Amino acid sequence: MGIVLGDNSYGKAETRLVFVDRAAPQHRIVDFNVTTALSGDLAATHLTGDNTDVLPTDSQKNTVFAFARDGVGEPEDFAARLARHFVESQPAIRSATVDIESYGWDRMTVGGAPAHHSFVRAAGTRTASVTYDGTLSVSSGITDLVVLNTTGSEFWGYPKDPYTTLAETKDRVLATAVTARWRHRAGSDWAVSHAETLRLLLETFAEVHSLSLQQTLYAMGRRVLEEREEVAEIRLELPNKHHIPVDLSPFGLDNPGVVFHATDRPYGLIQATVTRDDA
């Protein structure tokens, strides 16, 4: 039986980068978590310990900081700069993937006016993933975006087996933490594309009368593809953040849909990709 080395890569995980743009009186913050992964002709280091072609992960970290010196821009652009650099500067590297989590900061308001240098952390985390192997592949996304509808959601008509205890409902709280990742089929204004895609996801969640979280997920993905031509496909992961009505009858009280127990686990997890026929 032969033993061979399979696919492999290496890189620097979670380099935390904060860039403060001081060009204007009102400062601007860019807050990234950058992970690099390089692959190519790297068999020697695995098989014999020969590190001739291994750019140290510490060097990859330092590259992130050095490239930020004169500005960062959108996460997709910064990831593309890094990925191109690693492939084009290292003869043994054939492919580089750079993943970025971008943490948003909203400017505070003090006395009714925008603060020059004070911020509060924004909801959700923007993501970008770029792979360069001679051509660029770009994906964008959002994680940990918690949303909730207090009504307009049902769940009924499902099969019952000997272990079913869940009661059918025509009115429930629907809450989830959206993770979405969409692949681009053309370059675009990354900031506008991300803002508009996020707007469509949130508007659809709010507008759809939901008969299942699966239905809501598909409606969200379909709306993005219908209105954003640059998006080839979108993958959504929606955990069902259950809100269980509390039985107050032991205390001589009714519960007209106002008191809930928010559970964190276990939870239903709905996942699907919505794509174009020509993607």
Rank of each mutant, 00 (worst) to 15 (best):
D7Q: 13
S9K: 11
T15C: 11
F19G: 09
F19Q: 05
P25D: 02
P25F: 00
H27C: 13
I29W: 09
D31A: 11
A37R: 15
L38V: 06
D41T: 12
L42S: 08
A43S: 13
T45Y: 07
L47R: 11
T48L: 05
D50K: 11
N51I: 02
D53T: 14
D53F: 07
T57K: 07
S59A: 10
K61D: 04
K61V: 03
N62K: 10
N62Y: 04
T63E: 11
A66K: 12
D70K: 13
G73L: 02
E74K: 00
E88I: 02
S89E: 13
I93K: 01
S95Y: 06
T97H: 02
T97Y: 00
V98H: 04
E101V: 04
Y103N: 06
Y103H: 13
G104W: 06
D106A: 15
R107D: 03
M108W: 07
G112P: 03
G112N: 09
G112R: 10
P114G: 02
R121W: 09
T125M: 05
T125R: 03
T125I: 09
V130A: 01
T135Q: 14
L136P: 00
S137W: 01
S137K: 10
S140N: 13
I142T: 07
T150A: 14
T151Q: 14
G152I: 07
E154H: 11
W156Y: 14
W156L: 14
G157L: 08
Y158Q: 09
Y163K: 10
T164N: 08
R172L: 13
L174T: 03
A175Y: 03
T176Q: 04
A180W: 01
R181V: 02
V192R: 14
H194N: 13
H194R: 14
L198T: 13
S210N: 08
S212M: 09
L213F: 03
L217N: 01
R223W: 05
E229Q: 15
V231K: 00
E237P: 06
E237A: 14
L238I: 09
P245R: 08
D247Q: 10
V259H: 11
F260S: 04
A262K: 15
P266G: 07
Y267N: 10
T273S: 15
T273L: 08
D278N: 10
